[in-house]
């Protein structure tokens, strides 16, 4: 119990939050790299997945990509980046690593969502005279929406987790509080940092679940 009390003291001490290595700055770094990486990953993965799903090709790519994403250790990729000149380019190595690990869940889920649309629904829409474009916007996209959001949520969780591991190779982010605690044998600080990282991940997940419910196209249809 002692550690939890000490961690609470650490968290409520203002000095630990201010300054360059303070928790506030680390949190801002974490959110900054995670936000950029998630946006880039969406911009890359979603158009590709939606197009492939629409034309019904590239299933093997979508499935294999997520298997590869699982097998490659985040820590190893970050460490490999640190062996290249990339290490001198600020947040770039972290962002690249985050994008690499966010693309597979986004791509696979969006693709599975698109190809999972009931064939008879597609036939009916075509029978009503919808063009390929109308079919995509008004039938496939709304029906694939839940899976796309599932992909976005797992990508976001993955990004937050990866950004914390960046601290293990000396890059910025909330994880630095944990690694700094390990270096000074300060268990209270390690625990406090871990609570912050875990809370951030849970809050992001919670916000995305709420957004998902608010924005769902099927929900709007029902209330209208």
């Amino acid at each position: 119990m002692g550690v939890i009390g000490e961690a609470w003291t650490w968290l409520t001490t203002g000095a630990n939050w201010s300054g360059d290595g303070g928790a506030a700055h680390r949190l801002a770094e974490h959110l900054y790299v995670s936000g950029i990486a998630l946006a880039v990953a969406c911009a890359v993965a979603l158009p590709v997945a939606l197009y492939l799903g629409h034309v019904g090709k590239g299933g093997a790519l979508a499935v294999n990509l997520s298997n590869v994403g699982r097998a490659v250790p985040v820590f190893a990729v970050l460490a490999l980046f640190m062996m290249t000149p990339l290490r001198n380019s600020g947040y770039l190595p972290t962002v690249i690593a985050l994008v690499l690990f966010a693309v597979p869940p986004l791509l696979t889920n969006a693709y599975v969502g698109m190809t999972g649309v009931d064939r008879s629904v597609l036939e009916a829409a075509r029978g009503m005279g919808m063009s390929g474009r109308q079919l995509f916007v008004r039938v496939e996209l709304p029906l694939a929406y839940p899976m796309i959001m599932t992909g976005l949520r797992s990508a976001a969780v993955q990004v937050i987790a990866t950004a914390s591991i960046a601290a293990m190779v000396g890059l910025g982010g909330l994880g630095r509080i944990i690694t700094a605690g390990f270096n000074t044998y300060d268990t209270a600080q390690v625990f406090a940092g871990a609570v912050l990282v875990a809370l951030l991940a849970l809050v992001v997940e919670g916000v995305l679940v709420a957004l998902d419910r608010l924005l769902s196209p099927l929900r709007r249809r029902r209330t209208a």
Binding site: I160, I165, I178, G193, A194, V195, V197, A198, A201, L202
Partner: peptide, 8 residues
């Protein structure tokens, strides 16, 4: 929960 936090 991210792995780094879980282990910590």
């Amino acid at each position: 929960v991210p792995s780094l936090a879980m282990f910590s």
